[in-house]
Design a protein around this nucleic acid. Structure first.
Lengths: 290, 290
DNA sequence: GGTGTCCATACCTCCAGGGTATTGACCGCG
DNA sequence: CGCGGTCAATACCCTGGAGGTATGGACACC
């Protein structure tokens, strides 16, 4: 038996996500009957039932859930292959760095300068994405990313630690906590904290789409947030922040797709780690400048 | 533009590996012209030249090298998806453990017993592979593997350390080093050591295909080997071993495919780590039993 | 220049993937 | 209980593209 085709995987993912052949077909831009056939053929090929369909409702079997997970990963790998190849071929070598806005730990400028100083270093294109950086690495839209452990999913990625940051609570200046020198997590009880959806779970409460929106919500006193202390440099006037003594520290890491150890990526990672090491040394020497 | 098909990737990999359209077509079980067309179509689709062909010799462009790497990974992911799905569906849940023969650090029996004692634990099928365990995890032939850091490629895999082992030199009993209480790497100068081909490099010297063959070669005085000390328990009569004081210690790890965090795998990993911790504790209490 | 090698082109065939129309199972509702 | 509504499955047709054969054309070696 030869390997599955990506088309089949994409079809299955669509159906598994919609749990509805009609809608899935619509989403795929095709009619429903061929889709039904394709899925059935896939099941025959694997010798496994993937979906239980009672002409009223469609559900995933355990095997179907496995395939959904695996198929997503495989499709990511395929589109990543295409994208990386295109970028490797289309002259103009650029390194795409993905990051969350204002989440560079304050050392991005230094890193970019140091990297640009390297002989033969390509131009670095910085793209900002609030909650997609892992996926961007996996599917080839980005080459390296700044991410925060332990809050993100690093499967398929290689990482190198840059620096450990304590966390601070970001609050409006007139907030009850604003004057305090430090607070603990217990002091935050009762406050609305943002919900970071790990995997598209629709929980209750607001889900900020980007950093600006988050800051806006905080300024409006709708919520407060616990963030790495390097946000201090990026706060708008009416906000301030208070150290949270017992929040687990967050680690800024540089991440890249595991196998693609290109010269440019390796060089960037190395630059970033050395700059971070310097940074740690100097801030330790002159602590708490603010 | 929609995604590449696995067929195209497989075709490209074949050509890129053979660097010869005729042989690649033969290997794929098809005629040469359609293959040429398919590759050309792939290049058009990506907008990138993958191969330089001068009607005499075929070479990979840089972009082609990128695609070769990426395509292999993507194909692995696809076949892994199929295999894991089949295993998830075909009743009879078994956990497949891949290991190198006699490379269990002496704690496999305890791990298997402890795991079997867990309620609802599936049967464990142990498969031995001398130099394919990483690939077996990546393409879904195995669920977990015992591997040795830092000698293997762990990209795409998650690992958990089990135990650190010092290394010993395995030599015939009549060998000049056999009587010594310990040796250093310098003492091994001039000896023939096995070449472990990382990625199908054909270096000089013998390349043992499996452990038995290796031991045979040692017994025939054709070579000696530096291995983790837990091989002591598996040596044939005419061989002995000598600690190598300055060899970098090797770490026995349990590895599994990064995203497939199934209950069974997680449970096995947990069992293995606790058993290993116990093992470390007891061997520290009663050191050097042999 | 002849010959062998090897990739590209031209042209044909055929099946698999896709479309339309319809059936059949299941539910809700009057 | 019958009626319409919703979906997936089935039946049937049709077209594009994957694959095959024959041949051309570039290049090296003798």
């Amino acid at each position: 038996m030869d390997t599955l085709e990506t088309r089949q995987l994409a079809y299955f993912v669509a159906v598994a996500e919609e749990l509805h052949f009609g809608r899935a077909a619509q989403r795929l831009g095709m009619a429903q009957p061929p889709l039904s056939r394709a899925i059935k053929q896939l099941e025959r090929r694997l010798g496994v039932t993937l979906l239980d369909r009672t002409s009223r409702i469609v559900t995933l079997t355990p095997a179907g859930e496995v395939l959904l997970r695996e198929a997503r990963a495989a499709l990511d790998a395929v589109v990543a292959a295409a994208r990386r190849t295109q970028r490797a071929g289309h002259s103009d070598p650029r390194l795409v760095l993905a990051m969350k806005p204002s989440a560079d730990g304050g050392l991005l400028p230094a890193v970019l300068n140091a990297y640009a100083a390297r002989p033969g270093a390509p131009e670095v294109e910085v793209v900002c994405s609030f909650r997609e950086r892992g996926a961007m690495l996996r599917d080839g839209r980005a080459d390296v990313a700044l991410m925060h452990a332990p809050y993100e999913d690093f499967s398929g990625l290689a990482v190198e630690e840059l620096l450990v940051e304590d966390q601070v609570a970001v609050v409006p200046q007139w907030h009850r906590l604003a004057g305090l020198g430090a607070v603990s997590m217990a002091d935050l009880a009762g406050e609305t904290l943002p919900r970071w959806p790990r995997r598209a779970e629709s929980g209750s409460g607001p889900v900020p789409e980007d950093g600006g929106q988050l800051m806006q919500l905080i300024a409006l006193d709708r919520m407060i947030a616990v963030l790495p202390e390097s946000v201090r440099g990026h706060l708008r006037e009416e906000l301030t922040c208070v150290p949270v003594v017992d929040a687990t520290p967050t680690t800024l890491v540089v991440a890249w797709p595991e196998h693609s150890r290109s010269r440019e990526v390796a060089s960037f990672v190395q630059t970033a780690t050395t700059v971070a090491a310097d940074h740690r040394a100097t801030t330790r020497a002159t602590p708490a400048t603010r």
